[in-house]
Amino acid sequence: MAKEYGLLIISHVNEIATGLAKLIDQVAADVTVKTAGGTEDGEIGTSFDKINAVLDEFKEDKILAFYDLGSAKMNLEMAMEFSDKEIKLYETALIEGAYVAASLLQADVDLETIEAQLDPLVIKE
């Protein structure tokens, strides 16, 4: 059964993003996790177009997004401005943050509680 929130992972490397999704799937099978890793031609980087396309694929209207390095954030923020979805961007360590959020979403924990748990994991400004 799908949850209210979907989870988006953005990394400069496709394998990092898909690897993390694999890790999360183990504890949060019912949470929709999508990834936008690497550039469109599979190189290292992030892509506005790719993030944009992945956002459209979500059935969920609300998305929690996690990213690795600064330029991923910039592309994500641009995509957020173009998207109709309600997207929340978290400045946590990528793996820990996404893992915690997904585990709690799976357990139907409310967003406020999830965010309180994410707070100590914030490592970016």
Binding site: S47, S71, M74, N75, E77, M78
Partner: peptide, 8 residues
């Protein structure tokens, strides 16, 4: 462009 310079 991608990277940081694309959005910037």
């Amino acid at each position: 462009v991608g990277g940081a310079s694309g959005p910037l």
